[in-house]
Design a protein around this nucleic acid. Sequence first.
RNA 1: GUCCCCUUCGUCUAGUGGCCGAGGACUCAAGGUUUUCAUCCUUGCAACAGGAGUUCGAUUCUCCUAGGGGACGCCA
Length: 480
Amino acid sequence: MESTERLRFAPSPTGDLHVGGARAALFNWLYARKTGGKFLLRIEDTDSERSSDIYLKSILDSLTWLGLNWDEEPVRQSERSELYRGAVAKLLENGSAYRCFCTKEELEAERTGNPAEMTFQYSGKCRSLSKEQIDRNLKEGRPFTVRFRVSPGETSFTDLVHGVTTFNNDTIGDFIIARADGSPVYLLGVAVDDADMNITLVMRGDDHISNTPKQMMLMNALGHEIPRFCHLPQVLGPDKKKLSKRHGAASVMEYQNMGFLAPALVNFLTLLGWNPGDDREKMGVEELIQAFSIEGIAKKSGVFDLKKLEWLNGLYLNELPAEEILTLVLPRFIDEGLIPPGDRKEEREYLLKIIHLLKERCRVLPDFVSQSGYFFHAPETYEEKGVSKYFGNPQAADLLDGLADRIDAESVFTEEAAENAVRELAEKYEANPGKLIHATRLAVTGVTYGPGLFELLVLIGKESVVARLRAAARFIREKK
RNA sequence: GUCCCCUUCGUCUAGUGGCCGAGGACUCAAGGUUUUCAUCCUUGCAACAGGAGUUCGAUUCUCCUAGGGGACGCCA
């Protein structure tokens, strides 16, 4: 059962965990868990300008929230500069790399030199500098970067989802592997670390396909074994462009805030670009691990369909015990000022009852808050289309007042009592019980939809119900 | 511009030469259930990018075209 498979997710802490990144992490994790291998984390923070620990923490928090636990201490590239320096020295020594003294300005000129061509490939100007020239430049203290010397030929690999992919090396310019300040650039870090961490399978977004030959060249030059590669399709926005903030929410944290459940997001993200081979849609994490396979990964990039996520989330929400929902929504009720801060037993019990009534009507967490205002205060307005439908009848005011009196006289206010009260009253006035039910709902909640009326009334309580019925009756009379 | 990748309903997808007059799911529409809404159930709308081949037979194989995406940085 124990396998030697080692996978990694390598985020760079320059922002919150992106949905696309999360999906890549998830696939790596699923495969590792499926095969009994290891899921490792590597923090690619070689760009000190843009990296920050705040984002690092945010990314780790999101991974944890999703349930993607990692196996070894995360590797931080910013802490391993000696390793990269050694690799650069080795490459310089064996002739695989060379110093490039071109300034940024010179390179810029090279680029804009032939705008029609748009070919951003380094000319190779410093490729064959003589030893004397190099020594002279060094002595003068001229800054330099280190470039990899791409040799002719072609580089090809068998991608686990795309099959054999081949690149002509002529189309790959000599690329920089170390900056003027000596720090390593992404390509070098990846090659060195994937080897050092004994990664057996590199699984990442397919926007990295064209980086693959470069990394292979580096690993070859360094004498490392080449891992297998598996490139995942991209996650797109509705406009078919890479998912980004423009599309609304692009980070895991935003979806968390929007009230989605982690298992629902995990389920949804797995199904985006992968399928079990049968018609299953709702799959728990264990089930996903069981069913996951590289063969099921799609080549085509997929559009993130928020509607489907909401549907799936609704399914998960529906089967979540009310107690757990309570823990999740309590802060939201407090934020909305519906209940005072703190966690008192009385409020918990009240909320629990509300959750029971609302549960199957909600798709995301905020729905619980937005649909339950009337459990805390009398409606301020009445839904317009309901008013014309149920409050238009001149008899309506009398009915509501009558119901208020009837309920007020009730000693124990139960669902049965409430139902009897409504039905008896309707009979007395020779009115349609359905009509009275609707009018009562509107009077008490202000809206025309919601949970069963009688359970609703009991939960709101006799006193409030009576007051609201009378207020509505007054509203109807004043309206005329 | 060069290179790489991709192309089945609006969206996620099944389909690996005949089982496809293309299946499922989300969305949408209609109906049923429900005191309302939601749930649930039923039904419906809706796709093989185009063109050449190969073959007795192409959604499935090959080529071309078109379209989309990605990469090309002292970012990752």
